[in-house]
Write a protein that binds this DNA or RNA. Structure first.
Length: 239
DNA sequence: AGCCTCCGGAAGTGTGTC
DNA sequence: GACACACTTCCGGAGGCT
């Protein structure tokens, strides 16, 4: 189950960050009676690939089960009925509510959750080179959860580690880019939308709709597009 | 001429909001 | 339930290449 969670529910290519919250920062007391929380291990880094606010109820439940397994926590201490909530509600819980719901494991689980949240923010900061908190939180969410095709394309162009030569800039300053591997792009978009029938023909039709809204501008060359005046977040100087 | 790719209209679909 | 939005799907046409 966890395997499917790691590879299907969440995105790959998670970077681990160094400067996470310490136990004492959160609770003002030294860590005791818990296994060492090595910040984020390779196995739980998948949870950090989706901002916790976007977790579904199932994700929340799976995360709890994962933590119990991974950190040898006593699941009997946790009131799972209190955690029949989505990620947004989970993130909205106060520390006190969290401790009440999760019993003696509460402190540790709260600590892990805060670190996952901090990890997402740091990751966005790394990617964008350091911007104001609201901006990078917003960018973090669009980077990871782009529901719009043009944002997906933009983020792919801005993420060389995920791009794999599928897209490349023709003129970075003018926002002109080229689709190098059209089939691969369609496949990636199809995976994102859970649609294995996606083709470049269909994807390009969706891109052409952006001409009307000014998000993309027409470039009269095959497989070449240009960001329009209504597209944002692609300019290097504005990241 | 036949094939391939791109284009854009039209209708359908899934999701979110009110 | 109605409506808006963002695609998705289908299809005919245009243009380039062999």
């Amino acid at each position: 189950m966890l395997d499917s969670v790691s590879h299907n529910t969440f995105l790959p290519n998670t970077m681990l960050c160094e400067s996470l919250m310490s136990w004492s920062e959160l609770f003002g007391a030294p860590e005791e009676n818990y296994p060492p929380f090595d910040h984020l291990t390779g196995s739980d880094s998948s949870w950090t690939s989706v901002y916790p606010e976007y977790w579904t109820r199932n994700n929340v439940c799976e995360w709890l089960q994962f933590c119990c397994d991974q950190y040898k926590l006593d699941a009997n201490c946790i009131s799972f009925s209190h955690f029949n909530i989505n990620g947004q509600q989970l993130c909205g819980m106060t520390q006190e509510e969290f401790l009440n719901a999760a019993g003696i494991c509460g402190e540790y689980l709260y600590f892990i959750l805060q670190n996952i949240k901090a990890h997402d923010i740091d990751k966005a900061c790394l990617r964008t080179g350091g911007i104001k908190s609201e901006e990078f939180q917003s960018h973090s969410r669009t980077s990871l959860q782009s529901s719009h095709l043009w944002e997906f394309v933009r983020d792919l162009l801005l993420s060389p580690e995920e791009n794999s030569g599928i897209l490349e800039w023709e003129d970075r300053d003018q926002g002109i880019f080229r689709v190098v591997k059209s089939d691969a792009l369609a496949k990636m978009w199809g995976q994102r939308k859970k649609n294995d029938r996606m083709t470049y023909e269909k994807l390009s039709r969706a891109l052409r709709y952006y001409y009307k809204t000014g998000i993309l501008e027409r470039v009269d060359r095959r497989l070449v597009y240009k960001f329009g005046k209504n597209a944002h977040g692609w300019q290097e100087s504005k990241l």
